[in-house]
Design a protein around this nucleic acid. Structure first.
Lengths: 204, 204
DNA sequence: TCTAGGAAAGTGGACGTTCATTCATTAAAG
DNA sequence: CTTTAATGAATGAACGTCCACTTTCCTAGA
């Protein structure tokens, strides 16, 4: 059948999604018009609707893509050992790497997009579910690790594993906000201090 | 001059602002139409423009109001001692009270609004300045307190005061996000765990 | 190897709707 | 009776989406 290659189709889809991502990061989901995305992508208006049913579907796709990237970032930090029973040091280092990545200039656009996703999750149930699922995995992993460490008496027993996991994630989220508002935040100092704190409450 | 009382004017202004706040918390700034606010407030469209030059000015007013409320919340937690040189326990308790307030059901709408403010700050320079200013005060206060505590050797010297202050604020911000996404988050466990952590890194 | 035909890729102006804002007008207060 | 508060239909711009149309590419028949 006369079609174009599959590679071309996925490339076009990515072309649109990348443009949409840039627009959404810059202006938010609802201050970005379809025309904006059309201009940014260099593609005609009509064609966009061959790849996405509408703006809402594009937003969902962007949110999915964002969480996939986040997941990849977390897994990359674990140095690809493939070990399901991660050690404390491995997970802690992956966490610190994640916090370190906040300070990289090339990550800024991605972080800005993330903040828009977080705000949209407040309003749209489908996106809220995606965000929750994206956070659930890392949280459960961390909580299990902390729980195990408590068994070894390495972590004080009065710390609730799930609560502590939530707090660690909260630190990441809050630092993303502060960095996005003020690029001059000293990320190195944050990481060093966070490392010191981790050593105090979850010694290896 | 034939006018209505000043009290009436400020009441009307608040009537509009309250309605706008409810709409913005529910739908975000840019999915809320002026018609929505008009309906929610029970006031005619034209009258709104006697009190606010336009939608943008209303958003600014809402952001200001939000930070004033936050400031009041923080000061209320310090039990009105009026002491400029706050003690560690006083500030720590104010901080924990602030985190505790996240769990109060009647605060949810306010938190949802806050998340919208944070996202808008990414895009709009004027709002970003307001948000930064709102965070700067508490951060400086906390950093100074930590710095003083380090002088007394109560806090490890390898913790950067400003970084630690940022992390504490980040915890608040992240927990707001998580609570807004999932009301069933166990706030009591969070506060208890956070209290234990505070005792470890900033002993009194 | 060449070419006609069909199917999908791609275009961009048109469409109905919704938006923020205005203004001619009425109601009410002093 | 003058001044201001208050109304809400009107306005034009901008929005998301659609669709009639053109271009491009693959296949089939010679």
């Amino acid at each position: 059948m006369p079609k174009v290659s599959d590679a071309h189709l996925t490339a076009r889809r990515r072309q649109i999604l990348d443009a949409a991502g840039r627009c959404f990061a810059r202006d938010g989901f609802h201050r970005t018009s379809m025309q904006d995305i059309v201009h940014e992508s260099g593609i005609s208006a009509g064609l966009v609707y061959r790849y996405f049913a509408g703006k809402d579907e594009m937003i969902i796709a962007i949110v999915n893509q964002w969480h996939e990237r986040r997941q990849a970032l977390i897994e990359a930090g674990q140095h690809a050992t493939g070990d399901a029973n991660e050690s404390r040091d491995l997970v802690a280092e992956a966490y610190l790497d994640l916090v370190r990545s906040i300070g990289q200039p090339q990550a800024l656009e991605d972080l800005r997009l993330g903040v828009q996703v977080w705000a949209e999750a407040v309003r749209t149930p489908a996106i809220r579910e995606l965000v929750r699922r994206g956070v659930d995995g890392p949280r459960t992993t961390a909580a299990n690790l902390i729980s195990r460490a408590q068994g070894n008496s390495a972590v004080p027993a009065d710390l609730d594993p799930d609560a502590l996991a939530r707090i660690l994630i909260a630190i990441y989220q809050g630092l993303v906000l502060q960095t996005v508002w003020d690029e001059s935040v000293d990320n190195d100092a944050l990481v060093a201090t966070l490392e010191a704190i981790l050593d105090m409450i979850i010694p290896s």
